[in-house]
Amino acid sequence: CSRLHTKPSISPTLLLSNMYQRPDMITPGVDPQGQPLDPRKIQDHFEDFYEDLFEELSKYGELESLNICDNLADHMVGNVYAQFREEEHAAAAVQSLTGRFYAGRPIIVDFSPVTDFREATCR
């Protein structure tokens, strides 16, 4: 969507924009070279990413929730929403992650207003 969502100055929830790059992001089920991808490979790739992320974020505090968008819309694809139990832990994560890289791409991290993922749809 093109709406401007307010970015809180602090929140227990973080948004890591477009962080997950699925191997078949150009055409579903096909790699960028046009070769069909084994669904298990796609799942393993995702689980490796999730594991990396969980291990890294757990350094800053206890996670309440960790969601990775599988929505293919440009503004959503690969967005990671990480909700910590404590705002301070989220703040520590923002401080630490800002300016770093993941898999050759800059990490774009900000606080997110989302606190209840069941209600987290843009209307």
Binding site: D52, F101, Y102
Partner: peptide, 9 residues
């Protein structure tokens, strides 16, 4: 497996 964190371009 090596984590993707801090893998610079």
């Amino acid at each position: 497996r090596v984590s993707g964190f801090d893998m610079a371009p």
